[in-house]
Nucleic acid binder design. Structure first.
Lengths: 138, 138
DNA sequence: ATTTTATTGCAAATTTGTCGCAATTTGTGT
DNA sequence: ACACAAATTGCGACAAATTTGCAATAAAAT
């Protein structure tokens, strides 16, 4: 079994969830993709997984931390979380709407952790979106 | 007229929008509050502003930058943007769901600006959410 | 292989967000 | 303050998005 699918199986198992055909299909639709809207995911699974089941599986994925919900511009989008992708943040262009990844930045990550600590807060994750004008649009 | 309302009036005017009773009421519902869901805002305006008008005004507020839409946990929420509140970010507790503000951090802000620049990206705004366990829940 | 338990598909119900249009408010010029 | 023009509001009807009940089916456990 391909590596990431195996990781999905283990993660589901650990949380007492079933490793089903439908969930594998939905997972595949998210792999190596930029964040997608629910609508896009449903389309990607068209004919293979029912709409209602996509919603239900996405909810499970979210609860056990397999995916993350992001606010990108105006709509929310979903992508695999850091344990499946590399950790990263997004740049969203206010003009053309495209999103690109921001390379990982150690110094930023440390700063965030320090800030959380200073509030007696244990950081488990975070998300950052920078909005503005991309190179092409400025 | 109270200071913030005056600022609302001016901001609307500058963008050619009317300063109406309904918009004042909606604005008031957002003032000095943590981010709220659309549903909460509609409830807060119940009997005073119609649901459809709340949606319409919120859309205008968003377009001209009076409010910001945030992804907090699972649902999106709205709050007044930095020109009406102080600029800040949020800590969301994964356990109790409460959100609190992170005090402004100059060093963090500079770092973000630098990162955007390094991608030839002109930063116009950004939002950050740190998820984890708050003091009370850990 | 069989039983038990959880998940899926489908249809129906809710919930959320939009739209058209007449009535009202707001903005402007007198 | 008054009258007219332009924009906004409330309301009911729609459309889209998300959730739910339940019988059928697939996955887990024995």
């Amino acid at each position: 079994m391909p590596e990431p699918l195996e990781q999905l199986r283990v993660t589901l198992k650990q949380r007492g969830q079933s490793f089903t055909k439908a969930r594998q299909i939905i997972f595949a639709a998210l792999q190596d993709k930029e964040p997608q809207t629910m609508h896009e995911i449903i389309l990607a699974c068209r004919g293979k997984v029912d709409r209602a089941s996509v919603y239900r599986s996405i909810a499970v994925f979210e609860q056990i931390g397999i995916i993350q919900r992001l606010q990108i511009g105006w709509k929310y989008k979903l992508e695999l979380s850091d344990s499946f992708h590399n950790h990263h943040h997004h740049l969203t262009c206010n003009n053309c709407g495209k999103t690109t990844r921001l390379p990982e930045d150690e110094q930023l990550e440390r700063r965030l952790d320090g800030l959380a600590r200073s509030q007696n807060f244990v950081m488990q994750g975070h998300q950052l979106e920078i909005q503005g004008r991309c190179q092409d649009c400025s």
